[in-house]
């Protein structure tokens, strides 16, 4: 039988061990997201966002720079409006950066890919990305292919 002093000490050590595990898992194994630090918002309009969802990645040159905050439908133009949160670390993206909705691999998630432009001005909080490429919808591609073959035969 251990003395009560030893028992309390061991119980304390046990809890410390658990806290160490918590810190390890929180730091090492999870994505605190780019959104954990300070961020700024930019938005972009797409005629079609396909399967893009909130929390999807926003990347530039393969590096994650932010994530999709929310997707709404513009009531006037009926375009999809995608609001993105970009990390403050990437505060020098050119103003004429273009955004495309891309797919990671054939079966992967959809994400927003940014292509830098050449403007000396940078994107600021609340700015809108003007140049956008909508998502490629597989059904439309197939439809267009079928239509074209149809036309050739006639």
């Amino acid at each position: 039988m251990k003395s009560s002093h030893q028992i309390e000490l061991t119980a304390g050590l046990f809890l410390l061990l658990a806290i160490a595990a918590l810190i390890f898992l929180a730091m090492q194994a999870t994505d605190r997201g780019v959104a954990s630090g300070p961020t700024y918002e930019v938005s972009a309009s797409f005629s079609n966002v396909g399967g893009l969802k909130p929390r999807a990645k926003v990347s530039m040159g393969g590096v994650t720079v932010g994530m999709v905050e929310r997707i709404t439908l513009d009531p006037d133009t009926f375009d999809a409006r995608v609001v993105m949160r970009i990390s403050e670390r990437f505060d020098n993206l050119p103003e004429d950066t273009s955004a495309s909705i891309l797919t990671a691999g054939i079966l992967g998630d959809q994400y927003v890919g940014l292509e830098p432009g050449g403007s000396p001005e940078s994107l600021r909080d609340g700015d809108t990305i003007m140049i956008t490429n909508s998502a490629v919808v597989l059904e439309q591609l197939i439809g267009r292919y079928l239509f074209n073959t149809d036309g050739d035969e006639q």
């Binding site: 929180a26 090492q28 194994a29 999870t30 994505d31 605190r32 997201g33 929390r55 994650t64």
Partner: peptide
């Protein structure tokens, strides 16, 4: 490690 970090969300998953 980077694949793990990229796919696990602190809030929802952990």
């Amino acid at each position: 490690w980077s694949n793990m970090q990229a796919s696990v969300e602190l809030g929802r998953d952990f």
